[in-house]
Measured scan of single mutants.
Amino acid sequence: NKFNKEQQWATYEILNLPNLNEEQRKAFIDSLKDDPSQSANLLAEAKKLNDAQA
């Protein structure tokens, strides 16, 4: 299913963002699990935070 693929991709991407700390990473991944339909939005937020902390 589409959300499952998006969720897996977003999880992979978030795990590989270098500037997030473990707590932030875990929070994003927990949110992905809670609502896979928000995968794209959550990934965008994670990338923004990652860039802000660069």
Rank of each mutant, 00 (worst) to 15 (best):
L42H: 03
L43M: 07
N41S: 13
P18Y: 08
D35F: 13
A46S: 02
E13D: 04
E23K: 12
N21D: 09
P36Y: 03
Q8Y: 08
W9F: 12
N21F: 10
E45H: 07
A10P: 01
A54E: 10
A10I: 07
K48H: 07
K47P: 00
W9M: 14
T11Y: 15
Q24M: 04
A10R: 03
E23T: 09
E13V: 15
D34K: 10
Y12A: 07
N19S: 07
I14E: 01
L43W: 07
K48P: 00
L20K: 00
P36E: 03
S39I: 15
L42R: 07
E22S: 10
W9N: 05
N41P: 07
T11N: 05
L32W: 02
L42F: 11
Q53W: 07
N21E: 07
S37R: 07
E6L: 12
D30I: 10
Q38P: 01
F28S: 01
Q8L: 13
K48N: 07
K5F: 03
K47F: 11
K2D: 15
Q38S: 08
E45V: 13
L17I: 01
E23H: 10
D34V: 12
K47V: 11
Q8I: 12
S31L: 10
P36I: 04
Q7E: 13
K26S: 11
A40E: 07
A46I: 01
N1W: 00
N19G: 04
D30A: 13
K26H: 09
F28A: 02
K26R: 09
N16Q: 06
A10T: 05
L32Y: 02
S39G: 05
Q53S: 06
Q53T: 06
Q53N: 08
Q38D: 07
K26I: 07
A27F: 15
Y12E: 07
A10Q: 02
Q38Y: 04
N41L: 07
D51L: 14
L43F: 08
N21G: 07
D30T: 13
L15E: 11
R25I: 05
A46H: 00
K2R: 07
K2M: 15
T11S: 09
N4K: 03
W9A: 14
I14K: 00
R25F: 03
T11G: 03
P36F: 05
S31M: 12
P18W: 05
Q8V: 09
E13P: 01
L42A: 07
Q7Y: 14
F28H: 01
L15I: 07
S31F: 11
N50I: 01
N41A: 11
P36V: 04
K33I: 14
E22V: 08
A52F: 10
L43T: 04
L49S: 02
L43E: 02
Q8G: 04
N1P: 15
L42M: 12
N19I: 01
E45D: 05
R25L: 04
D51A: 14
L17T: 00
P18M: 08
L17S: 01
I29Y: 03
L15G: 05
K2H: 15
S39F: 15
Y12N: 06
E13W: 15
T11F: 15
Q38L: 09
E6D: 10
I29H: 03
N19M: 08
F28T: 01
K5G: 08
F28R: 00
S37N: 08
D30W: 11
N41D: 09
A40F: 14
K2E: 15
L17A: 01
P18H: 06
A44Y: 11
L17H: 02
N21I: 06
N50G: 02
K47D: 02
F3Y: 09
Y12T: 05
L43I: 05
N4G: 14
N4E: 15
L43D: 00
N50D: 06
Q53G: 06
L49A: 05
Q8W: 09
A10S: 03
N50P: 01
K48W: 08
S37M: 08
Q7S: 06
S39A: 13
K26G: 07
Y12F: 13
Q24A: 03
E22R: 08
Q8M: 12
N16F: 03
N50R: 01
K26T: 10
D51I: 10
R25Y: 03
E22M: 11
Q7D: 06
A40W: 15
A46P: 00
E22Q: 13
D35L: 06
A46F: 02
Q38H: 06
K2G: 15
Q38K: 08
L49H: 03
E45Y: 13
E23Q: 13
N16L: 10
A27V: 10
L32M: 06
Q24Y: 02
I29P: 00
D30N: 14
E22L: 12
Q53V: 09
N4W: 15
L42V: 14
K48A: 05
S37A: 07
K48I: 11
D30M: 15
K5E: 15
L49N: 02
K47Y: 14
P36S: 04
P36W: 06
D30S: 14
S31T: 09
R25W: 02
L20E: 00
K47G: 03
L15Q: 11
A52Y: 09
K47M: 11
A54Q: 10
N4M: 06
L17E: 00
L32E: 00
P18N: 05
Q8T: 08
L49M: 10
L17V: 00
F28G: 00
T11E: 12
A44P: 01
F3W: 05
Q7T: 07
L20F: 01
K47A: 05
L49G: 01
D34L: 15
A52T: 08
D30Y: 12
E23R: 13
Q7G: 05
K33Q: 07
K47E: 04
K48Q: 09
L43K: 02
W9G: 03
D30R: 15
D30H: 13
N16G: 08
E23A: 13
E23G: 08
D51F: 14
N16M: 07
L49K: 04
L17Y: 04
L15D: 05
A46Q: 00
K2N: 15
L42S: 03
Y12P: 01
P36K: 03
A54S: 11
R25M: 05
F3S: 13
N16R: 13
F3H: 15
N21R: 12
R25T: 05
A40S: 10
N41V: 09
L15F: 05
A54T: 10
N41E: 09
A44I: 10
E23Y: 14
N21W: 09
L42W: 10
L20A: 00
S31Y: 07
Q38M: 12
N4P: 14
A40Y: 14
L20H: 00
K2I: 14
Q24T: 04
E6G: 04
L42D: 01
D35E: 07
A52K: 11
I14M: 04
D34A: 12
P18A: 08
N50E: 02
S37H: 06
L15A: 10
I14A: 01
L43G: 01
A40L: 14
A44H: 07
Q53D: 03
Q53M: 11
D30L: 14
N19L: 05
A27L: 14
I29A: 03
T11V: 09
P36N: 03
D51V: 11
L32H: 01
S31K: 14
N50F: 01
K33H: 11
L43V: 13
N41F: 15
L43Y: 09
A46M: 01
A44R: 10
L17M: 14
N21V: 05
Q8R: 09
Q53R: 04
K2V: 09
